[in-house]
Simulated scan of single mutants.
Amino acid sequence: MSKLQRQAALQQWLSKTFKIASPDLQMVSGDASFRRYFRFELAGRSAIAVDAPPSTEKNHQFVALAEALSQQGLAVPSVYAADLEDGFLCLQDLGSSLLEQQLTPSNAKQLYRQALRLIVQLQQTPVQSLPELERFDAAFIQRELDIFADWFVGQELALPDTWQQQADWSSLCRELSEAIMQQPYVAMHRDFHCRNLMLEQQRLVMIDFQDMVEGPICYDLVSLLRDCYVGWPESLVQDLSLEYFQHLPAPLAQSVSEEQWQRWFDLTGLQRHLKAIGIFCRLDHRDGKAAYRAAIPQTLSYALKVSAAYPELQTFHQWLASVTKGLSDELH
Rank of each mutant, 00 (worst) to 15 (best):
V63G: 03
A21W: 04
M27T: 15
K19L: 15
Q71W: 03
Q121H: 09
M27G: 13
K305W: 05
L116G: 06
F136I: 10
A82Q: 03
R36M: 02
P311N: 14
H332K: 11
D86L: 15
F265K: 09
L313P: 06
N107L: 09
L327T: 08
E259W: 12
C228A: 10
C228P: 05
P105R: 07
L240V: 01
E312G: 13
S307F: 12
V323W: 01
L111F: 01
L98S: 05
K58L: 14
S46W: 04
S241K: 07
L4G: 12
A47T: 00
Q210I: 09
S307W: 09
W261A: 02
L221D: 03
M206E: 07
D51G: 13
S322I: 05
S301Q: 15
A303M: 06
L4C: 07
W261C: 05
S2C: 09
F280T: 12
E41P: 12
A8F: 10
F40I: 13
V213L: 13
A75P: 02
W163D: 10
Y219M: 11
Q92A: 04
K325V: 14
N59S: 08
S170L: 13
D146C: 05
G231L: 01
L274K: 09
P54K: 15
M27H: 14
A309D: 08
Q102F: 02
D93I: 05
V213A: 04
D329A: 07
N107W: 11
L320Y: 06
A115S: 10
W151K: 08
S223G: 02
K19D: 15
M212G: 13
K275E: 02
Q314E: 13
V50F: 00
R282K: 09
S15C: 12
F88A: 07
S170E: 14
D287C: 06
T162I: 00
L221C: 04
L304H: 12
I147N: 09
K16I: 00
L320S: 05
L267M: 01
L69M: 11
L122W: 07
